[in-house]
Structures are given as C-alpha cells and as structure tokens.
Amino acid sequence: MKPREFLAHSGRQFGTLVGLFALCAVLWALTPHFLTVSNLLNVAQQTSINAVIAVGLTFVIISGGIDLSVGSLVAFSGVVTASLLQRAVPVPLALLAGLVTGLACGLVNGLLITYGRLPPFIATLGLMSVARGGALLYTDGRPVSGFDEEFRWLATGEVLRVPVPVVIMIVVYVIAHFVLRRTPFGRYLFAIGGNEEAALLSGVRVRLHKTVVYGVCGLLSALAAVMLTARLNSAQPIAGINYELDAIAATVIGGTSLLGGQGSVVGTLIGALIMGVLRNGLNLLGVSSFIQQVVIGAVIILAVLLDTAFKRPKR
C-alpha cells in the first residue's frame, strides 16, 4: 500500500496511538516510577487479560454483534480448568478442557443468534447469567485454588525476559490481525457487519461465520480465564464480573464502531493499553479509585466523541 492509502486505512489507529504516547509522556513527567522496564512489563501484563478478551469482542462487534457473556465465560472456563488441575489432570489436558468449554459456550451463543434468531444482546445476556450460575454451581460458590508450578508458569514464566502473559497477548494479536486482514473469514466479518443482506447475496455463509465468531470470542475468553487463574493461583466463580464492559471500552477506544463493519484489532490493543496505562499511572500517582473511575469513563466518552465529531464533516 502507498503511504497515503495506509494513512487513510490506519489513520484512526494512528490517532489512538498518539493518545497513548501522550498519556505515557504525561506520566513520565509526573512520576519517575512510570517509565521503567519493569513497570512497562507490569502494565503489559496487567493489560494482557483484558486485551485478549477484547480481541474476541472486537471480532464480534465488527460482525455487527455484541457479546455480554465474556466475563461469565472467564469464570466458568476458569473453574473448569482449575478443578481438573486439582484432580491432577495433566496441565495440557486441563487447558484444552478449559478452552473447549469457552469455545462450546461461544458456539451456543452463535447458534442461538443465527439459528435461534435471537438478538445478540439477548442471547449473550442469557448465557452471561447461565455461565455465571454454572460456575457457582460447579464450585459450590467457592474458589478453586493452589496449582503447581507447571501451570503457574503461564503467569510467572518468561520467554526471552518477557512475561508469558505478554507473549500470549502478542501472539494472539498477531494471529488476530492476520485473520482479520488476510483471510476470507476476516473479510466476511467486515462484510456481514457492514451489510448482512449484501453479504448473503454475495454468497457469504452468513450463519456459519456468525456462529464461528462467537465461538472464537468464547475461546479467547477461556484463554483469558486460564491466564487469570494462573495469575491469581485461584479460579473464582465470581471472577470476571464487568470484564465485558472493560473489553467493550478497549474496543471502542480503539476505534471499532459498535454498529459493525469497521474496526481493527491494532486499535483495540492500543485501547486496552490506554486503559491499562491509565490505571497503572493513576495508581502510581496515588489517585483514589473513585477518581480513576471518572477518568476512565471520561476517556471512553472523549475517544468516541472526537471520533464522531471529526468523521461527520467528511460525509
């Protein structure tokens, strides 16, 4: 692509990136603790879980849907993995079981939406409650905790001095970006989100791809669940409450339209990092958690406000 076309394509992400850098610059000026290698890795690690969930949500939102169940799926897949680990099931098998749980729940979402013709909001709202209840039932409401080092490596290990969660996040984003930009599946998501009828009449298997995208979202929630469980050395049935909102926030800050048909995972990554950096920075500055909530809300509103304000005259 020529530079001009690249900018037209990626201008929005570029803007968000400038916002992220600006944020970092301000924090650098305000506190000496921010711009250190260990703190930046720390931020990346803290961002990784939200970032992984947000990829799945970005896919779903680009396809014109929404998934409210991700937080509950984190809890459910987490306790499934954890309970298997406690029964001395080999780590790879327990991981696989957790991921399959997430995938299966996601596919249920997808089938309810495509074949059941439920609006995505309703279907995933339902599953949000079902999965949460399932997690509580399965564990009798108690956290499942205490795993061996092999599993904990997912949180504590390092690859080339980079923490494993950050490595997982990077790998997920590279794959997701490739899928979105270079595979028919990715292209179809944009087409379905942009105009489902036109996609159908162009021979796109709309129902298949819509079902799959919710499966992917569930799978990524389960991956986040595994990361969270390893990090806390515990899986809680009440984990992941409000995670869907954090993930939606990252997606929206990253420039993905809630109306579907446009967006990018690169933007979402930057959005998730903005949220992570904000929280980290406000902690470092000792700002109270109440003000933090106000600031994060304001950033979401600001990002979308600027987006729409500067898009309008171009039409």
Binding site: T31, N39, L232, A239, F290
Partner: peptide, 19 residues
C-alpha cells in the same frame, strides 16, 4: 472499586511495588 475484585487488587499492589 468492588470488594470482590481480586484481580484489580492484585494490579494495585503490583503498581505499588513498582513505586
């Protein structure tokens, strides 16, 4: 913000350790 948010408490403590 929430009493049960163990992950967030962990983040806060990590950030304080950084500090």
């Amino acid at each position: 913000d929430r009493e049960i948010d163990v992950e967030r408490q962990m983040q806060i403590i990590e950030n304080l350790i950084e500090r």
